[in-house]
Design a protein around this nucleic acid. Structure first.
Lengths: 339, 339
DNA sequence: CGCGTACGCTTAACCGCACAAGCGTGCTGC
DNA sequence: GCAGCACGCTTGTGCGGTTAAGCGTACGCG
């Protein structure tokens, strides 16, 4: 089956290609009657303008890019990206924008992808995830003048617009809640060191524990996998002054931690309170259900998409603060049996 | 920063645009010395040919599409798609193919997306997931002659090439294993009815239970979510002749079922054996760890990608049978305490 | 009545690349 | 010595859109 082109529409409408182009793009230059006739014919023969030709003649590619730099096993296990993508998609689809996805091995590969996309004019803009401190991607994108929205922060985003959530505040709220329950020895199993949001949480945790006078508050770095979460938990629970509450940087590690604790004969929440960051349905499936810090990830993605589309149209965008994660107390937190 | 074009490369190399094109595409028509010089200059100034121009002048779009038709909450919870994507990506990236992703609401929207992609020449081919019986997407893609690979089957793929895994055999193996342990009352919590692989599993389950003379073997349909899995489990365990073993169509429902069973005071595996389809790290995090049917999803995706790329180059592809899921026994299965 | 102008459409020039056809050069074969 | 040909490159065309410029027509106005 031959793909219809603008010339086919023009021929059937008895007008020139230019007229069809004006009609389809809502530009002035054709009468309303002609416009309607052209639109009807286009719909009838199922015409969609070639994105290639359109992109070539200076218009936009009608596509944005997302490069993910995580190993496959972590990508699969974390609902975050898939939820983000589905939120992003909702906005993009409404404007007929396509999402181009690429999984990359490391930051160098990711930068190479951006340069290639830019050179190929394949995308009109990109999302940047997993922001790092002194992130090398930022200056590259600024140099290329490729519209971009950083998903993360605050700060460290150069002049790029961003969307962020106040993880520090959420963490402070959580620690204060645990302290209010009577906990004094609180520990944290962190995400990948080097990621900005991990560092922000780590600093906020240290500060709030210091402020509240909690002794030996410690963050054990991890990598979001269950194995590492289990290992970190085992280490924490084996120490002389073992914590009575642990905050995990994602749900998978929290579930792994729960398993380890139960394995070691601890009663949850009597002997150990557990809080998970990222509230997924999984948190409600385990026993006891996990107290978790949740937020609406699809909405976050949708906002990021709107932000990027605005940036693409040339608007001067800045940092946007999204909803702060909120604590949903469930059965995994309670006053400690022994202080 | 201005994007380099083929003309920039040509000027610096002191040759014509045509020569550069030949050199970059590995075509004859330039001497080896000139080719090397041109390649060096292209690399130096960071030239990537515009995908739009390339696609426009008859070559391929160097992109393939994947439309996902699942609600956001299910997409997020199931590691399957993300793992599939990361496997697909590995193959695509090696050939500089991009993956265009779209999340759609229903099959009509999905078909509209295929028509649009085809008209826009945005993709060279597509993957089809979640195959249904009498799937309406198949005839559309055949009509459009858009290269496609069906991820699913066997059968019901029209003339489209496909890649499939023998779910029936895996299910039979599982039931036989449970029977060998001494189980007589086995039930199953199935995935979304209407999906071909769900139907295949349901039929295989009914057949093998019939063959082995298991009484009242029943499949309760569900939708992959934890809530539904929990509800189905509650129903099964409340029946007069409650099963001593349950097979779940995904890991999330299995974990939910485990929770429900424990909640109802049953000991796992003594009172109830549980098997999960899709072996994710989650299965090892709960207590007891779940016996699961697993396979290498990224490899599955990689194979699908190779299949599609071959189809795009015009090779006549057929159905390819991938590895059958294999059972990994863990702590959630054992001989039943009471037969 | 004649002129200026807004309208509605056409024409044609691009965008950046691939590739067919053309063309000069040097080598081969008879 | 010259036709024939392979080689290495250039020229030119077209892919399917967008868009500036051109152009005829109708209409308003002094």
């Amino acid at each position: 089956m031959k793909r219809p082109t603008i010339a086919d529409v023009a021929r059937r409408a008895g007008v020139s290609k230019g007229a069809v182009s004006y009609a389809l793009n809502g530009q002035p230059g054709v009468s309303e009657a002609t416009r309607q006739r052209i639109l009807a014919i286009a719909a009838e023969i199922g015409f969609s303008p070639s994105s290639a030709a359109r992109a070539l003649s200076g218009a936009t590619a009608k596509a944005v890019g997302l490069a993910l730099c995580r190993p496959a096993r972590i990508l699969g296990i974390e609902p975050f990206f898939m939820e983000l993508i589905s939120g992003v998609e909702g906005e993009l689809a409404a404007r007929s924008y396509a999402l181009t996805l690429q999984v990359v091995a490391d930051q160098d590969a990711e930068i190479a992808v951006y340069r290639r996309w830019w050179g190929e004019r394949r995308v009109d803009g990109v999302f940047i995830c997993d922001l790092r401190i002194d992130d090398r991607r930022i200056p590259v994108l600024e140099e290329l003048q490729l519209p971009a929205v950083v998903i993360g922060g605050p700060g460290h985003t150069g002049n790029l617009p961003s969307i962020w959530s106040d993880d520090a505040a959420a963490l402070v709220e959580t620690v204060e809640y645990l302290v209010a329950l009577g906990h004094r020895r609180v520990a944290r199993v962190g995400g990948l060191p080097g990621l900005l949001h991990t560092e922000i949480r780590t600093r906020a945790f240290a500060e709030v524990c210091d402020r509240l006078g909690l002794p030996g508050a410690i963050t054990v770095p991890s990598d979001y996998t269950g194995e590492e979460g289990a290992r970190a938990t085992r280490r924490l629970l084996s120490s002389a002054q073992r914590p009575t509450a642990v905050i995990y940087d994602n749900d998978v590690m929290a579930i792994a931690g729960l398993s380890v604790a139960q394995e070691m004969g601890l009663a949850i929440p009597a002997d150990l309170s557990i809080v998970a960051w990222d509230d997924s349905p999984l948190c409600q499936l385990v026993h006891p259900p996990l107290t978790a810090l949740g937020r609406d990830i699809p909405a976050y993605g949708a906002h990021a998409a709107r932000h990027l589309l605005s940036a693409i149209t040339g608007e001067k965008m800045s940092a946007f603060q999204a909803e702060t994660a909120h604590l949903t107390p469930r059965g995994s937190t309670a006053p400690p049996r022994i202080r």
